[in-house]
Amino acid sequence: MDFNKSIKPSVFLFILGFVGIVSIVPFIPNLLALQSAPLPLTVEMIQVVSVIQSSVLLLFLVGLGSVFSKKVGLSSPVIFALAHSENALKELKPQIIPAIIGGIVGGVFLLALLGTFSSYLPAEFLSAGEKLMPPWYTKLLYGGITEELLIRWGLMSFFVWGMYRLTQKSGSDIRSHNYILAILVSSLIFGLGHLPIAFALSPEITAPLVAYIILGNASFGFIAGYLYWKRGLECAIGAHMVAHLTMIVGANFA
């Protein structure tokens, strides 16, 4: 019975992340259209393979986060409350305002960053980015949920534990610098992970393009990582969603 209780939150988290993976499937043909070379498989098979690969990665990092988050005091309080039939609303309330503030701040910063860099970015990149913008639901579900499970729940939790073991004696209280370093490293990895798609969108690779992709994607990671640390995973997820909504609204006004 205890084993079942301990595994339920992980199952919930995986299902949420899987919904995000499925949301990107209709967008895959648009990405494949970027390739000039013949496709090795049919579009449908590539979609299936993509879902399988992404699901395996999600499964691994959800498992990683489930193990190491407990070791370093990080949590997903709303999901854990739901899994154990406790008051999830009570756990959610303290996360709502920080998520809204963090998301708006992050979204506005990213819009300002794009405005600052736009004149230095390749025209082909900007044009392709407008044509290949993922649908809003993919931004919310994959960006907001799946990416947070991969980067914050999985990688950041592991990095906090790893840095703690490298810099402190076992059994001592985990110091803040371990969380801060883990936020920085996981955010940087998140930024670097967006370079391949950026390079696919632009025939010209420039220093401003690389700087924009890394800084733009990593910068919000600092906000989400801090919220995960201080408030819980759902706060980071909510902020990520609000950031996307802020950028959508801001782009429409622009």
Rank of each mutant, 00 (worst) to 15 (best):
L181I: 03
W161L: 14
S10N: 07
A128Q: 10
V62H: 13
L61K: 03
F3L: 14
F159E: 02
L82I: 12
I151K: 04
T206H: 10
Y226C: 14
I214P: 04
A200T: 07
V249I: 11
F117D: 11
V62K: 05
G106T: 00
L114M: 11
I213T: 14
F14T: 01
F125K: 06
A123Y: 09
S176C: 01
Y120C: 09
I205K: 12
M45H: 11
G17E: 05
N87F: 00
V242H: 02
F125Y: 12
L74M: 12
A182V: 05
V51G: 04
P40R: 06
V72W: 02
G129Q: 08
A83F: 09
I24K: 03
V48Q: 14
L16C: 11
G225N: 08
G171L: 05
I15T: 12
L227N: 02
P134C: 10
E86T: 08
V105T: 10
N178C: 15
I197Q: 09
G232M: 09
S186G: 10
I97F: 15
V25N: 02
V22F: 15
F125A: 00
G154E: 05
I183R: 06
S219K: 01
L227E: 13
V62L: 04
L39R: 02
G106C: 10
E148Y: 07
T246I: 10
S170V: 11
P29N: 01
S36Y: 01
S23Y: 02
L181E: 03
G171E: 07
I104P: 01
A200E: 12
L233M: 08
I180E: 04
L155H: 00
L209Y: 02
Y142F: 15
M163Y: 10
V49F: 14
G221H: 04
N87V: 10
A81C: 08
M241E: 01
A211I: 07
I104G: 00
M163L: 15
V22C: 14
A33L: 07
G238Y: 00
S170P: 05
L39Q: 05
D2N: 12
S127W: 06
G107T: 03
A200W: 01
A99L: 09
A182S: 15
N252V: 05
N178V: 02
I197E: 03
